[in-house]
Each structure stands twice: as structure tokens, then as C-alpha cells.
Design a protein around this nucleic acid. Structure first.
Lengths: 105, 105
DNA sequence: TTGACATGTAGGAAATCTCCTACGTATTGT
DNA sequence: ACAATACGTAGGAGATTTCCTACATGTCAA
């Protein structure tokens, strides 16, 4: 299972992460989203394109609005990528490992 | 709790994610890591610097080697950022949602 | 001490990112 | 039909990323 680079790249920008956070409250028109940012609309439009191409949002045309909604599926890839690392910060395994590492050096 | 932008930025690069994967098997000298990549050493050195500044690896000097080890702590921030989205792909809510989405198209 | 080794730093080229100001294209209301 | 609205696209400036080729620095071995 190759990790989708576009997803990680999309998340690298804080504004794009914020867009996803906004969409957790439900679908929003492009303009509504843009109003929340201190940035010109075309710039936000570009961010939406990046998110769309990473499959993280879906666009639906409603009249003269474009309503965006969250498509969280690809985030699972991030979660999956992350999971082998969880043991390093959770539970007793991590504690044990930390102890061993310290003694090793 | 602000999300550390450096961590997400560090993960945006596939080579850097691969470095972290290598270090999951244990500490490695900079050169050993570099040997695994089709890239000149100074470039890898730069990636290691980015990872170091994001707090994702630790450098320890041993003779003329610099041994890098995984510092997974900051990945927890990513995991925490991700957690509000989990409900969208896990459990009954996700199943129902997936079903509805499939019928829609 | 001298040479080989391990690795970072300097500086630069090319590509990419992130923002901007116009401008184009639908859609809606009058 | 016409103006206003909503939003994307084009094109470009400036910053940043990602790679490179030298080169500097510190360590080890003879």
C-alpha cells in the first residue's frame, strides 16, 4: 500500500488543515470558507484545489455556489502510516524502550 | 494547544518519512541512512536537519559518526490532530456514510 | 603528524509553493 | 437583456524546497 504523497503534502499547509477543520462542522460554500481567512479568495481557491486533488474534499455545484464537504477517507492513510510509531509514545512498551535506550548510550 | 507546523512540514517529504521508517529499526549513523537513498549525502544531511529541527530525530556524536535515533514524541501531535477525523472512517457512522456515498453515484 | 573517513556547511540552480492582481465564466435577480 | 454575485483561472513576484558540487571540520589509524 503506497502512501499517497499528495495527502501529506496537502496537510503541510496550516491554512489547508484549518479548512478541513471548518468542514468538520459541515459543508460550506467556497466563499464562506474564504471569509474565515485573512487571504484573497483566489489563494483560498488554490488551497481548495490542492485539497480536492488529494481527495480530502469534495466539490458540489449548487447554483452559483460551490459547496465543499469533507472527504476524510484519505486521512486514514496518514493514520495507518502513523500507527507503527504509536508504540513509541504510548503505554509500557514506550517506557521500556526509553529506559533501554538511555542505558544503551 | 497549537499544532507544530514543522512536524507536518517535515512529514510532507517522502524521503524524510522513509528516514523515520528506517530509524524504527534502531539508531543509525548518518552514512548508513544515506546509503539507502539514491541521493547525494549533503541532501540527506539537509533532510536530517529538518527532522532534527522538528524534534523527530536526535543526533548523537560517536567518534566520527553521527548516530541518529527516532524521537517519535512529536508524531503524537499529528495523531492528536487526526483524531477528530477518525469518526469519519471508523465504526458505524463511517459504514453508513460509505453506503450512502456509494448509492449517491 | 598525516592521510583517510564521516559528515556538516556554503552557495547556487531549478522546481515548487503561496500569495497577489486582473480577468473569465456561470448563475441569479431585476 | 443586464448587472450583480460566486468562484475559478491566468500569470507573475517572491519565498522556500530540494537537489547538486565544492569545501570545511573533526576524528581515527598508521
Amino acid at each position: 500500500m503506497p502512501v499517497n504523497d499528495d495527502v501529506f503534502a496537502a496537510l503541510a499547509n496550516p491554512s489547508r488543515r484549518e479548512v478541513l477543520g471548518i468542514l468538520r462542522d459541515g459543508p460550506r460554500a467556497a466563499g464562506e470558507i474564504a471569509d474565515r481567512f485573512d487571504m484573497r479568495r483566489p489563494s483560498l481557491s488554490e488551497h481548495l484545489r490542492v485539497l480536492r486533488e488529494a481527495g480530502l474534499v469534495r466539490e458540489e455545484r449548487q447554483g452559483r455556489n460551490r459547496v465543499y464537504s469533507l472527504e476524510a477517507g484519505p486521512l486514514r492513510e496518514v493514520s495507518d502510516w502513523l500507527s507503527p510509531y504509536e508504540q513509541y509514545w504510548r503505554g509500557k512498551l514506550a517506557d521500556l524502550r526509553d529506559l533501554l535506550d538511555e542505558e544503551e548510550f
